[in-house]
Design a protein around this nucleic acid. Structure first.
Length: 924
RNA sequence: GCCUGGGUGGCGGAACUGGUAGACGCGCUGGAUUCAAAAUCCAGUUCCGGCAACGGAGUGCGGGUUCGAUUCCCGCCCCAGGUACCA
């Protein structure tokens, strides 16, 4: 019997499904291992060959760990709230739940074909009320918590209220946005509404007026990472700035812990660095400058307090609140004009004109805190209102932007660096010695930095300060297809809904669009459409896409629990994810938010770990290889690749199924589309038409998409799995090439043939295999184990190929070799392995319950080694020598060898290096 | 600009801690089988010279350390991803 992969794969797919082979239960006897994929959004387009890449790798690893005796948790689910389903609903009136359900069905079918060992009993969907009940519950925990800076953790808001009642807010050290100070008496006298308003400033999720990225076309707010170059990532629509009352998450309270936590994670440097940059910690000082003739001061943030004596002017952002107050009448007109211009500029324009220097003098002066000098105050749009305090102390000798500004407006440039020339530009290195700076003179950077802060604090015009670029995360979306908030309003005051009424399910609406007043779609629901209603109105916003994905990895541990988001004993057993595989595009979104929520739930004692994903691998993208035909301008004539430069021709994407090895099937091309029916061709000399090619993203519009279903049908899932791994290192982006899949398919057939005779009968020998075959086997076990341990999935495939090639040459058909080899290959090619495992006589279990073979040194012991002999580092010949030969004797044998004579050419070698068991190098 | 990766045959890639560069696969060339094709099998395939034995060059470029460098160090070029008036 030949290798009938279709029959075999169908058989085992059914078997695994019926027997729930990969169902996982807690087992305290076994060590746990949690392997997780980033769960997909089930889009209508289905999967292309790039999607399963990460899933295949994680599945291989999950199967490998299982064979090693671990209790492996390997679940899958769907991030099923999202914009595409909603857009489709707007267009067709179809409820997003319906389309989502259909898409999930299709995803499941495609996934099942590939033979993943997921425990489908643990499947979750973020849009399922059983699931989002707990997303709402977690939101409530954020609402009911504040951040205690002293304890460096979140605590119940009740504790804070108690403190307010007893002592007011004077001494509390929290992460907050409260700008007033009150006593206990005052607190108690506040109205309920006022108290709630103040508490908002302390809660870890709170309502606040915020500048948001508003996308008019999508009718929603977008997160910063959903906007690129002033346009929405989804749909590429323009995005403008708008002020709205929004729910926010106080992620800034966790900035330092999110930064520190990275140290202990086994993630790529690139991702860690991205998160570090995103958090953007800078250490410096906050300094106050009095304004001459006003009872006002300007607060600036600087990372270079050591250069404070170099300040020769100040610049405020055009939007800065003090500008109105301090501008003198003489300069009023110009300043107002400049402010107007700046406000009209979009963020994009400001970025595009980095080189254009602009600004206006306000007519006002600040007083230098140390020297008492009068410093002119300017406004300029290179200072951003949204960062720091929106004001800078300008030190032209130490900052290039300040230097440029000073040069342009002819402002003084005071040099405070010893022996450094600043006439051509600012000196931004930190290796100089301070000069011209009173008490800082003669100090190097680090000492001057500390000394400056010390003096600033001592004299009371500022303090050391740490600034973060990270902003609180906006948590409201004006969409329908998301989690409703567990919130109702009395007047303008929000109240959370009691646990017993959760989940608050999505109400029925007549349309999925905003109302005429611009309220979100949920405002369309009538009172009776809600499964719970209280107060004057319900919250109309829904949660953002990242809400459900910020904690889903926990729900897999206990997916059906209706009393808790996860049971204590389950989370104690499984803990966090040991291996997480997914794309790197989530670096500053999902991966940051999930870490934030985990730390928060850890603070409240709900989770026994504070980092969700211990080890992460980011798989690269599989790119498509597009085929291009060149059409001569204004004609229907196409020209073959080698002659295209003789014409004025433009490239047209051709469906890759019409092209074989760059050769276009001209007949089928004519049939492909009506417009090419009468196409003419200028061919190569041999009459063939050759296409050009380009490596780019897989997309329908480029006709370069390969569908995994087709490949499974033609070659089998085992072949597809192995080939995707064989393409190259997992993390790397690489082009897809369907041609190469044959090589892997042939390998599996060769492997199958080791177990069968010429007639196709199962024929495995019970005799003792040769020493050589055992050596091949154990060499392979060793390499495969090592490679899997370092996640080198591609080289494992090569190793297995080499092994099968060698066994084939050795005519090895022995059980003692083939049985362990079957287990070895099973993580990659589970279907064929199951079939052969059964044939080998294991009727009882499946190969997934076998034990991973362990390599034995004894089979690899060599008595001799083929020494490469180099002369001056260049390998010239090889010589087989016993391994127990002493280096001195090796040297002797080599030098006396006839081939050496030629290279020595009568000369005496200067030096002979013998590395026993490795190489010999002769220096002439 | 800054940060993080990376640059090896016609292509994807291998070489894990400095020790035979190009494993494995694709493609290509030749041969066997076949009426023919597909499939399969065998041989060859880094480049240059040579029928060959063999010789020379060679891991983006230039330099260095070393008996020996794809691997380590210095300078530069190019590609990909991220990020940006962040004070």
């Amino acid at each position: 019997m030949d290798y009938n992969f279709r029959e075999i794969e169908q058989k085992w797919r059914t078997f695994w499904g019926e027997n729930k082979t990969f169902k996982t239960v807690e087992d305290l006897e076994k060590p746990k291992f949690y392997v997780l994929d980033m769960f997909p959004y089930p889009s209508g387009a289905g999967l292309h060959v790039g999607h399963p890449l990460g899933y295949i790798a994680s599945d291989i690893y999950a199967r490998y760990k299982r064979l090693q005796g671990y209790n492996v948790l390997h679940p899958m689910g769907y991030d099923s709230f999202g914009l595409p389903a909603e857009q489709y609903a707007i267009e067709t009136g179809q409820h997003p739940a319906v389309t989502t359900e259909q898409n999930i069905k299709r995803y499941r079918q495609q996934l099942d074909k590939i033979g993943f060992s997921f425990d489908w009993d643990r499947e979750i969907r973020t849009s399922n009320p059983d699931y989002y009940k707990w997303t709402q519950w977690i939101f409530k925990q954020f609402f009911n918590s504040y951040y205690d800076n002293k304890a460096d953790k979140a605590k119940p808001i009740g504790e804070l209220i108690k403190i307010f009642n007893e002592k007011g807010n004077k001494d509390v050290d929290t992460s907050n946005s409260c700008s007033i100070v009150f006593t206990a008496e005052e607190w108690r006298d506040f109205s309920e509404e006022r108290q709630q308003e103040i508490l908002q400033d302390y809660r870890l999720t709170y309502l606040a007026e915020t500048w948001v990225n508003w996308c008019p076309k999508l009718g929603t707010v977008l997160a910063n990472d959903e906007v690129v170059n002033g346009r929405s990532v989804r749909g590429n629509h323009p995005v403008v700035q708008k002020k709205m009352l929004q729910w926010s998450m106080r992620i800034t309270a966790y900035a330092e812990r999110l930064l520190q936590g990275l140290e202990q994670l086994d993630w790529s440097d690139a991702i860690k660095e991205q998160q570090r940059n995103w958090i953007g910690k800078s250490v410096g000082a906050s300094v106050f400058f009095m304004i001459d003739g006003h009872n006002e001061k300007i607060e600036v943030f600087t990372t270079r307090p050591d250069t404070i004596f170099g300040v020769s002017f100040m610049v405020l952002a055009p939007e800065h609140l003090l500008v109105e107050k301090i501008t003198t009448s003489e300069y009023k007109e110009k300043v107002t004009e400049y402010q107007k211009e700046a406000s009209l500029k979009t963020e994009r324009d400001r970025q595009a004109n980095v080189k254009d220097i602009s600004g206006e003098f306000t007519g006002a002066y600040a007083i230098h805190p140390f020297t008492g000098e009068k410093i002119p105050i300017w406004i300029g749009d290179y200072v951003l209102a949204s960062y720091g305090t929106g004001a800078v102390m300008s030190v032209p000798c130490g900052d290039q932007r300040d230097w440029d500004f000073a040069k342009y407006f002819n402002l003084p440039i005071k040099n405070i660096f010893k022996d450094i020339d600043v006439s051509e530009g600012a000196y931004t290195e930190k290796d100089s010695v301070i000069d011209n700076s009173d008490f800082l003179n003669g100090l190097p950077y680090k000492e001057a930095f500390e000394k400056a802060i010390e003096e600033i604090e001592k004299r009371g015009f500022g303090q050391k300060k740490i600034n973060y670029r990270l902003r609180d995360a906006v948590f409201s979306r004006q969409r329908f297809w998301g989690e409703p908030f567990p919130i109702y309003y009395k007047g303008n005051t929000p109240y959370v809904i009691e646990d017993e009424y959760l989940p608050i399910t999505l109400p029925k609406v007549d349309k999925y669009l905003p109302t005429e007043d611009g309220d979100p779609p949920l405002a369309r629901a009538k009172r009776e459409d809600w499964n719970y209603f209280n107060g004057d109105r319900m919250e109309y916003n829904t949660m953002p896409g990242w809400a459900g994905s910020s904690w889903y990895f926990v729900r897999y541990l206990d997916p059906k629990n209706d009393d808790e988001f996860v049971a204590k004993d389950k989370v104690e057993y499984w803990k966090n994810v040991d291996l997480y595989i997914g794309g790197s595009e989530h670096a500053t979104g999902h991966l940051l938010y999930a870490r934030f929520w985990t730390k928060f739930l850890y603070d409240l004692g709900y989770l026994p770990f504070d980092e969700p994903f211990q080890k992460m691998i980011n798989q690269g993208m599989i790119l498509g290889r597009s085929s291009l035909a060149y059409r001569i301008k204004d004609s229907n004539t196409f020209v073959t690749l080698s002659k295209k430069d003789d014409f004025e021709a433009s490239a047209i994407h051709v469906d890759i199924s019409l092209v074989d090895n760059d050769k276009l099937n001209v007949e089928r091309f004519r049939e492909w589309r009506e417009e090419y029916k009468n196409a003419e061709f200028i061919t190569e000399e041999d009459g063939s038409f050759i296409c050009g090619s380009e490596v780019e993203k897989m997309s329908k519009s480029k006709y370069n998409v390969e569908n995994p279903d087709d490949l499974v049908e033609r070659f089998g899932a085992d072949t597809l799995r192995m080939y995707e791994m064989f393409l190259g290192p997992l993390e790397q982006s690489k082009p897809w090439d369907t041609k190469g899949i044959n090589g892997v398919h042939n390998f599996l057939r060769k492997f199958w043939r080791l177990f069968h005779d010429k007639e196709g009968n199962f024929a495995v020998s019970e005799e003792k295999p040769s020493k050589e075959s055992l050596k091949t086997l154990h060499k392979t076990i060793k390499k495969v184990t090592e490679d899997l341990n370092r996640y080198s999935f591609n080289t494992v495939v090569s190793t297995l190929m080499i092994c099968v090639n060698e066994l084939n040459d050795q005519k090895c058909h022995h059980r003692e070799v083939l049985e362990p080899l079957t287990v070895l290959i099973s993580p990659y090619a589970p279907f064929i392995a199951e079939e052969l495992w059964t044939k080998l006589g294991h009727e009882e279990g499946t190969v997934s319950q076998a034990s991973f073979p362990v390599f034995e040194e004894q089979y690899l012991v060599e008595s001799s080694h083929e020494y490469p002999v180099s002369f001056n580092g260049k390998m010239r010949f090889k010589l087989e020598l016993p391994l127990d030969l002493a280096p001195k004797d090796i040297e002797k044998v080599i030098l006396e060898h006839e081939k050496s004579q030629k290279w020595l050419d009568g000369k005496i070698p200067k030096k002979v290096i013998v590395v026993p068991g490795k190489i010999v190098n002769v220096v002439v």
